[in-house]
Design a protein around this nucleic acid. Structure first.
Lengths: 179, 179
DNA sequence: AGGTCTATATTTAGGCCTAAACGTAACATC
DNA sequence: GATGTTACGTTTAGGCCTAAATATAGACCT
């Protein structure tokens, strides 16, 4: 059985809370719920696309981060955790899985002390080249119902919201200047 | 260690692909990536908020769906799967966990044949009442950096996108994958 | 130098999920 | 009435993740 494919209408959720519990603070539902539903639909779809290529989304995420970093396709596990938004433990497991499949190698003893460097192997590089366009093209199709102008508007609003949520979550780190 | 807290800048991801692989179809990144990053940040935060109340997000989701449905707080597992956007197997496990904790009960033999009905217990009802405002209020705070007008715009665009993605996934279903 | 602290990465325990295999029960058809 | 089909819910196997417990190895201090 496939995972569910039809998100439940957001408006009905807010209305139901209002009906059942008048005064429930529903103001965030119109944004938070569709964000989760979209993430779920897109994530499920990406997983199915990648399954055909014999890879899982977590592994491709790791390989993609390394590939995008450019030569020499090497990052510390610390950087990998930050760029993937997962815990250090998750990175350790991702790297172990990918290393077992020959997609990356671990190296230590160079540069900063105590850091573990992870480098893409030719096989890992090849896997990215073979799958990334497929995934990105598919997603471009999926959001293609919005006009270019709507896409720009939406991307702009999401960017503002993301930066703001980040600040409110207590991360006061400055990640970007301007723009 | 907590999960990662700072999303990686979306623009840098698209720029990196362009630099490393000119021609990579990056047009969806400005929307898909922030949607995932927001879902991750909001999901992590909700999990931590609920952990203090001794409940997990999957269980509260189940209880909330039942609570919102109104009297007699009863739905079939079929409805639960559709409204939760998870597989039937996941619903079965969610209900089993919640039943073990006395938050719901299962009943069969009524109404449609072969359907299992899940009903909220008083304890389950109480848990929803005790936590849902907390969660929703917190999320309203987190998105509070957008002006009311921006929130309306964003909600509107997300609604359009969601409906459109749903249609495209329905048409363009991926054929079955082995393994 | 030795003990303690600190910063990292890894391992472990436990949770949730998907996909697929199962087990059942109503139904249609012969 | 027997049998194949279909519609469900559950169970199983395996994957990924978080949080916390474990190593480890420099740094710091007395």
């Amino acid at each position: 059985m496939a995972s569910a494919d039809a998100p439940y209408p957001v408006q009905e959720i807010a209305d139901a809370w209002e009906r059942e519990r008048p005064g429930t603070p529903v103001s965030a539902i119109g944004i938070v719920t569709p964000v989760w539903q979209l993430a779920k639909l897109l994530g499920d779809d990406r997983r199915r696309v990648l399954a055909r290529a014999g890879v899982d989304t977590a592994t491709l995420d790791l390989l993609s981060v390394l590939r995008r970093a450019g030569e020499p396709y090497t990052l510390s596990t610390r950087d990998l955790a930050a760029r993937s938004m997962v815990t250090a433990g998750a990175v350790s497991q991702r790297v172990a899985r990918a290393e077992r499949e020959g997609l990356v190698v671990r190296r230590t003893g160079e540069g900063r002390p105590r850091t573990v460097w992870v480098e893409l192997t030719p096989a890992g590089h090849e896997l990215v080249e073979r799958t990334v366009d497929q995934v990105l093209h598919r997603e471009a199709e999926l959001i293609g119902g919005l006009t270019p102008d709507q896409q720009r508007q939406l991307a702009g609003l999401l960017k503002i919201l993301l930066q703001d949520v980040q600040v409110r979550l207590g991360d006061n780190r400055i990640t970007q200047v301007g723009g």
